[in-house]
């Protein structure tokens, strides 16, 4: 299974909410969708945290030098 991406997670979350809003899901499906949705929310929040914790600026030449060392 391929690694989850923000795009895939947010797209799936949107689909889940649309399904829940339709009112067509039964109780079991609703609860499963809610559980899956909560996991996706956590994943997306972690991704957002990753790009919010402060700019980390690196120089490519230093990075390459470090890798070569």
């Amino acid at each position: 299974m391929s690694e989850l991406t923000y795009e895939a997670a947010s797209g799936r979350l949107e689909a889940i909410i649309e399904r829940l809003d339709s009112g067509e899901a039964g109780l079991r499906e609703t609860l499963e969708l809610c559980r899956e949705g909560r996991g996706l929310v956590e994943f997306c929040a972690a991704e957002l945290d990753e790009v919010s914790k402060g700019l980390e600026a690196l120089r490519l030449d230093e990075l390459v030098g470090r890798l070569d060392a």
């Binding site: 990753e50 790009v51 919010s52 914790k53 402060g54 700019l55 980390e56 600026a57 690196l58 120089r59 490519l60 030449d61 990075l63």
Partner: peptide, 11 residues
């Protein structure tokens, strides 16, 4: 964009 991730400069 409110983005503050990792930036690699290649001058």
């Amino acid at each position: 964009r409110g983005w503050a991730g990792r930036l690699v400069w290649a001058f």
